[in-house]
Write a protein that binds this DNA or RNA. Structure first.
Lengths: 92, 92
DNA sequence: CATGCTTACGGATCACGTAACCATG
DNA sequence: CATGGTTACGTGATCCGTAAGCATG
């Protein structure tokens, strides 16, 4: 399980398309497509309908989404806490 | 930020030594040492005292520990939920 | 035919395992 | 000197970006 893939998943959901997410993340579309496929493969679960030429979040994706958000949020909070620790360490 | 590194961190704390953690994780000591160093480098923060020939969790490590545990726990819960989803999917 | 996703492929980076080394109790 | 951690190094896997291809509205 890779955090980068979860962040990519969230970015694609929030941006609406892989293309828009790639602009936001300053990465190439192919990279995001492959990360998403890797995530779906790893979970053994399709998160989007890949049938049309646009991706659509499916039922499973909607169930996984809040958990992925929570994990990424916790990671960001940990990063903030670490920065706080180092700041206090320097202040003391 | 890599989840594998957090899991390694927890394993080292729980097992007490890198050696014991490497047995538990079925990996080599060098790999765990390097993952730990990578994590500390990434956070910009020493989590252990590296002075003796045994690692000792320091104050910063004790602060980060519960957050790391929470993140890993959330990831495991997500994995379980995904398995549940796929089970139900197969049942229906 | 414009938009958006996917696949192919080459290069770079990362991660591991074996082996050798260093430090401490 | 036994135990535990670290460094060196070569190999295998992973990831990305460019380029090309495919599908749909």
């Amino acid at each position: 399980m890779n955090l980068r893939r979860l962040e990519t998943f969230l970015a694609i959901v929030d941006a609406g398309t892989v293309t828009a997410a790639s602009v936001y993340l300053q990465a190439g579309q192919p990279a995001l497509t492959k990360q998403l496929k890797a995530l779906e493969s790893e979970l053994g679960l399709q998160l989007f309908d890949h049938e049309s030429n646009r991706l659509h979040l499916n039922a499973a994706g909607r169930e996984v989404l809040p958990m992925a958000r929570h994990i990424v949020q916790c990671v960001n909070e940990m990063k903030s806490s670490v920065q706080l620790i180092t700041s206090n360490r320097h202040a003391s």
